[in-house]
Simulated scan of single mutants.
Amino acid sequence: MTTRQLEQERPGLARPGSGRLAQAPADHPPVPQRKVGVLLANLGTPDATDYWSMRRYLSEFLSDKRVVDYPSWKWQPLLQLIILSRRPFKSGEAYRGIWNHEQDESPLLTITRDQTRKVAEGLHEALGDRVVVDFCMRYGNPSTDSVLRRMQAQGCERILFFPLYPQYASPTTATANDQAFRTLMTLKWQPALRTVPAYFDHPAYIGALANSVREAYAAAESVPEVLVASYHGVPKRFLMEGDPYHCQCQKTTRLLKERLGWGDDAIVTAFQSKFGPEEWVGPATVEHVAELARQGRKHIAVVSPAFAADCVETLEEINEEIKASFLSAGGERFTYIPCLNDRDDHIAALLSIIRNELAGWC
C-alpha cells in the first residue's frame, strides 16, 4: 500500500520519518508515527532500602484505597504516625536480604525488565517495529503515569495495558487499571486503552506452572510429599463483597493438579502476607506448613502461582519466614519453586495472551 493510499485510509497520518501530518500547516507541532503500545504493569518497588525510601514506597502502597479501604480519617493518622514510624525499618531489612546489589535494585524490577525485553523481542519478531513495549509499576518507579506519557510521545495511539497478575483482585489488577485511567483523565489526547483480563486458567500459563514444578521435583534430592500453592491473601470480606480472587486461586490450583496428573492430597492451597486485624482468606501459609510438619510431612515444596516475578513476598517471606516455620515444627526439607519470571514458556504464555488481546489492532 502506498503512502497516498495510507493517507486516504487513515487521514492525518504522519509522513514516514517526517514527524509531520500529511496535510498539516507548516507551524503544526510534530506528530510521531502511529504505533501500538504494550505496557506490562507490576506491583512496585522501593528505590532503595533506607528508611525514607521505604517510607515513601509504603506510604504510597498503604494509602491506596484498593489496598486498605478504611476511612481516611481513621486510617491515615494510624498509618503516618505509628505504622510508618516503624515498618520501614523492618521492610528495609527484608529488602536488603534479597536486594540485587549488582544493579542496585529490587529483584522485582530486574525480572520485570527482563520479561519486558523478551516480550518486546517476541513481538518485534512477529510484528516488526509497529509495537512499542514497556513496563511500569503501580507504586514507585517507573511510574504508570510517566511511562504512559512516554509511550504516547512515541506515537502510541492505542495501548494494551497488561497487569501481571494471573488472578484478578481489587488490590492488584483493579488498582493497576485505576492508575492507568487516572493518567488518561489528565491527557488532552487520550490513547485508546485496552486492559488484559485475568489469565488464571490460560492453558499456556498453567502449562508453564506445571513445567516449573516438574523441573523442581526432578532436581530435588527427594520427592516432596506435598506441594503448597501459596497465594497472596486478601481479607475474607473482599470475597463476600464479590472479589473473584479466592475462587480464581482455587481454580488455578485445581488446573495445575490436573495438568500434573496428581491426586487431591498432593497439592494444597494456602494464602500468605496477612496484614491488619480482620479475618483473611485461609488457611494461612505460615501456619499451614507448620501443621504439615506436625502431621509428619518431612519434605514439602512451595510454589507461588499469583506472582509473575519473584519479589520480597516470595524470596524473603516464603523462602525464609515460611521455610523457618516448617523446619521449626519438625520438617526436614523445604523446596521453594521460583516464580515463572522470564522462563521461555512463561514468556510464550504472555505473548499468546498479548497477541490475542491485540486482535484488530495489529
Rank of each mutant, 00 (worst) to 15 (best):
T285M: 09
G12M: 10
A219I: 08
L164E: 08
A349V: 05
K251E: 15
M1Q: 09
S63D: 05
Q115W: 08
A176M: 14
A306T: 08
I347F: 07
E215G: 06
R214Q: 14
D201G: 12
H101F: 13
P224H: 09
H101N: 11
E102I: 03
G92H: 05
R10D: 04
L6H: 11
G12H: 00
Y95I: 13
T110C: 05
P16S: 10
A192R: 05
M240S: 13
A41E: 06
A208N: 11
I322M: 02
F275W: 04
Q8G: 01
P166V: 04
I267H: 02
S273T: 02
E125T: 12
A306W: 04
T144L: 14
P32Y: 02
S230A: 11
A153G: 06
V38R: 07
A204T: 12
E321Y: 02
W262M: 11
A229R: 03
A218P: 03
E125S: 11
I206M: 03
T116W: 04
W73M: 09
G140E: 11
F326P: 08
H28K: 04
G282E: 14
R96L: 01
A41M: 15
A306C: 11
S304E: 06
V268R: 12
A26W: 11
E291T: 13
H288A: 01
L21C: 09
R149S: 01
K74P: 00
E291L: 13
P77A: 06
R355A: 11
A218L: 14
R87Y: 10
E313A: 02
M240W: 09
D264E: 15
